[in-house]
Amino acid sequence: MKTAFPVLVVLAAIVALWYAAVAPMNIRTALDQAERAGAAVEPAGARERLEVSVWRLMIDNPDHVSEGYALDRPRLPTPVQVGEELWKTTGEMVLKGRAMSKRSLIYHASITLQSTLWGFLLGTTLGILGAVAIVHSRVMDMSVMPWAIISQTIPIVALAPMIIVLSAQLGIEGRGVPKAIISAYLCYFPVLVGMVKGLRAPTASQLDLLRTYNASQRETFFKLRLPASLPYLFTSLKIGIASALVGTIVGELPTGAISGLGARILIGDQFGTPLAIWAALLAAAILAGVLVTLLDILQRVTLKRMGMPT
């Protein structure tokens, strides 16, 4: 409750700013349209208007400002327009019983989700196994950890088209695999770092205690290190799934994919339908929010049952 009110106020302020920005952003397009429809516009001619600032245009043509809020192809759509477009491509499709049609964002979101989850699974597995190896083997720690850090400073998007060409050449069918590889690449690092930290979280005295119990390395791992690492694991899983989604969308962007949220953004760009881009962006944001929230709930439940503070 203490944070809900400020968050709502800030959100309202953002929406208000957004609405205010729509008028200057869209005034040129609105005037062009009005002129084509035969209305008198000051100054006449699209080329002449480029010389005039948007503020001047808004003062000179106060009647046409409102038209900027209802354009078909706005430079900046209003939140309501984006919401309507999103509803049109999700809820309405469901009501019509065509939730999985190619025009439905639910279909595209499910394609993206699939690759994201595969990438997440792959990345998390790699991250956890790597962390276990790094914690238990000094040579892994010394020789692999620096490269893991360097791997993240390499912009993966530079590699994304390469990965897709490579997997196509190697005869891997479908676009899901390269996307999953890209998202695994972005996702494994936070998990690796978090798990290394978590597995090393037990204090020297706790480790000593297990040694006095004559516990083997295996027992120490399963009874002390692994449980102690869980809070770290969940925190990094939340970062990891968000990165995996970013990876999938990046993997869909430059590669001419035809399904998936990233592909919707690409297609919206190529066909000049900004509303489709905005709706896909909003859908991606919602997907990210849902995934992170699910992991958050899982974290709370698990840690509570283990008797840890959440």
């Binding site: 944070t3 400020p6 968050v7 709502l8 106020v9 800030v10 959100l11 953002i14 998007v157 939340k238 970062i239 968000a242 989604l245 970013v246 969308i249 990046v250 962007l253 949220l261 990233g262 953004i265 690409l266 919206g268 760009d269 881009i277 896909a280 962006l281 991606a284 944001a285 990210a288 929010g289 992170v292």
Partner: peptide, 19 residues
């Protein structure tokens, strides 16, 4: 008010805004 929103936005796939 801004911290939770900022945290959320930081997790979003903002690259999509490129086009």
């Amino acid at each position: 008010g801004l911290l939770p929103i900022g945290n959320f936005v930081a997790a979003l796939p903002i690259v999509g805004i490129a086009p």
